[in-house]
Design a protein around this nucleic acid. Structure first.
Lengths: 159, 159
DNA sequence: ACAGATAGTTTGTGTAACACAAACCATTGA
DNA sequence: TCAATGGTTTGTGTTACACAAACTATCTGT
């Protein structure tokens, strides 16, 4: 935990680079997403929702690290576009269980398909295997520990 | 997740995940960077500047994909903190060559050191080797896109 | 030498994506 | 019954932009 004197401390911080690459993708994504009535933030929410399955709005707020009042607005957008559904939890009727609708899942897939070109532009320096590695690293970092198996499997072939 | 036995087409879009992870880092970075008088955007600029060596403000605007009027403000911040220097280009005195100062390089290193903990929090699911891989992938991706932009942009000289 | 393009700057306007606070309702649990 | 909780609405403020207009200094082609 505390500072071990310099052993194999990697001097490379990803943060700024991450920021940079993300911005490039987001800028282009906006124009691709607009015809679908979506914004990058919606995509993130839908993606998280897909990966998480149903969850409460609080869970979502925590995962997105957003203020819950703003999550409400975000979900209002998505719900009025019929991309997500808010169901009352039977266990605790104060709670909303937020879930992707079929329409939502389809729209997400559609958006991802449309974004292929964007990623080709920005991640053009990476071949397919590298992009898959990148995806897996991000997925794992985002806290889906199950990705471990997937990452392990990468070096022989894609999973 | 879907186990597609299919071909080589990677169904995974990184964009949303990239956005998500980047946000997590940026949120925490802000509090770490504030005592240093920096913001995440400054870090990105400094990083790019370090990787690029000296360049004109237009080059920088293109690399950052920011409007040049806003780049001016960004550089004003950095210059008044003595982190960068604007020198007139001898070849074309309209042009400013923007360069990291020694102070700037030191401050950048300091910031990166301070950000180690932040990345530990957010990228905690990745070991050192994976983080290095992530860094390299991002670096490569960023480099390619810059090269692409540069090819279009440049008439003759530096790139 | 002159005209038009170019690099940078300033100022000003607008917008999106937030954070945060306050007040409110329905529901839960002690 | 009463306090806490999940969600919602409204309202305020900030930041990070994009974009436009007008200006200076400088360069380049004719």
């Amino acid at each position: 935990m505390s500072e071990l004197p310099v052993v194999n401390q990697p001097p490379h911080r990803c943060g700024a680079l991450l920021d940079h690459v993300t911005r490039r993708i987001r800028l282009r994504s906006e124009t691709v997403l607009t015809p679908l009535g979506l914004r990058p933030r919606h995509l993130v929410a839908l993606t998280v929702l897909r990966d998480l399955g149903g969850c409460s709005q609080q869970d979502l707020a925590k995962t997105l690290e957003m203020d819950s009042t703003n999550v409400v607005g975000l979900l209002n957008d998505l719900e009025s576009a019929n991309l997500i559904e808010r169901k009352r939890s039977p266990q605790d009727r104060r709670r909303h269980i937020v879930e992707l609708t079929d329409v939502g899942a389809k729209q997400l897939a559609k958006a991802e398909f449309a974004l292929a070109e964007v990623e080709d532009q920005v991640l053009g320096g990476l071949d397919d295997e590298q992009r898959e590695t990148l995806y897996n690293l991000l997925y794992q970092a985002a806290g889906h520990a199950e990705a471990g198996a997937c990452v392990e499997a990468v070096h022989d072939d894609n999973c």
